[in-house]
């Protein structure tokens, strides 16, 4: 990451979660720019707009109104324009079904929202500092779900 800052996007319908998310990144000592979207439609509109800069990292909540995280994931993976986009699933549940589905659809990592702010910070910094080229090549079902 030789850019000045990391461009991070989050699509989550929950206002509190968006708040925790941005607050956590503010406290992290990483130069970043966080953009949040309140649902899947907002996110996709932004991504498809040619003039917008694409994020390096996209955090995707699964359960969203109008357009779910799974739908967004499918659309993104169909479009070659987004082939370098790192996608982290950011969900409340870690049901086996969801983990399996998103893994098969090509997400890069699966994060369960922690119930402790310090933990959240730890998780997010872990994701941001991951060497994605290395991680993606050795990706399997076991290390797909992030455990801290």
């Amino acid at each position: 990451m030789n850019k000045e800052y990391i461009n991070i996007a989050l699509a989550d319908d929950d206002e509190d979660d968006r708040f925790f998310f941005t607050e956590a990144f503010e406290e992290l000592k990483i130069k970043n720019k966080v953009t949040t979207f309140k649902d899947g439609i907002d996110l996709m509109l932004h991504l498809e707009q040619e003039s917008n800069v694409l994020p390096d990292l996209l955090f995707l909540d699964l359960n969203m109104p109008k357009k779910s995280g799974i739908e967004c994931l499918k659309e993104i993976k169909l479009n070659t324009k987004f082939k370098d986009l790192i996608i982290a699933i950011y969900s409340t549940s870690s049901s086996e079904e969801d983990v399996e589905k998103t893994f098969v659809l090509g997400a890069n990592i699966y994060i369960t929202k922690p119930n402790d702010f310090e933990k959240l910070k730890k998780v997010l910094s872990e994701v941001v500092t991951t060497n994605w080229q290395y991680h993606t090549s050795g990706l399997n079902k076991e290390n797909f779900l992030l455990r801290l």
Binding site: D14, F20, T92, K113, P114, N115, D116, F117, L120
Partner: peptide, 15 residues
Amino acid sequence: HDLQEPLRKIQTFIS
């Protein structure tokens, strides 16, 4: 899902 979500927030706010 739905029950865990508010609980998670309570716990996060506590932290």
